[in-house]
Design a binder for these strands. Sequence first.
DNA 1: ATTTATTATCGTAATATTGCAATATTATTT
DNA 2: AAATAATATTGCAATATTACGATAATAAAT
Lengths: 107, 107
Amino acid sequence: MGVSKTEIHSSTQIQIAEIAKVLSHPARVAILEYIAKQENCICGDIVDEIGLSQPTISQHLQVIRNAGLLIGTFEGKRFCYCLNVNRFKEFQQLLNQFFNHTSARCC
Amino acid sequence: MGVSKTEIHSSTQIQIAEIAKVLSHPARVAILEYIAKQENCICGDIVDEIGLSQPTISQHLQVIRNAGLLIGTFEGKRFCYCLNVNRFKEFQQLLNQFFNHTSARCC
DNA sequence: ATTTATTATCGTAATATTGCAATATTATTT
DNA sequence: AAATAATATTGCAATATTACGATAATAAAT
């Protein structure tokens, strides 16, 4: 009834789905791209960059943060979040494992 | 108000999000894995394999089909769907492009 | 300490997703 | 053609997601 039956699936399947869910909204894709390309991590202007309200961006950022894709650093006095590249590459690796494993077994 | 503002995003961002959405449910991940590993494409028993009702599986299959990930073939008399490996690998490639492009630009 | 700027949270409305029972459709046999 | 099997669709309920205004919390600067 609208709720996913996660208990019937393997942890790997759930993991892939969780990773994919983070990327399953264009705003989050855009935010990730934007954060990554900002050299000095001044990320407060995501709201200006992407045409969504500040609460909405904050909500999307939370999804990204919960996935472990954000790390905070200090640049002088300013605190700013930055892409967790290691985690990001882990996402890529896990997805590639899924793709390779799955397509290799196909008829 | 609950609806994605797709018009503000680039076609690449939307494409990545669409690909990710297909993989964003463990049942669909499981279905893709199952279809891929079936040598002779006898896929009617997905329902037995995965613990979900036939309508629910059919619904998930439609999402997978709409993404272009299913092709139908004839094996003797039986029609059966099979993973579209080319499209599947295209998904992998597009995701890798996104990951490589994004992580390369990070601070 | 008080203003100012930035980010997070709350509340709420609209829409989407997930799941299944019931039913319809389609295909295959007999 | 009628029966059987397999898949798709419909309808509906429960939950999740998306979006934003209002507000709270946090940090920076005066």
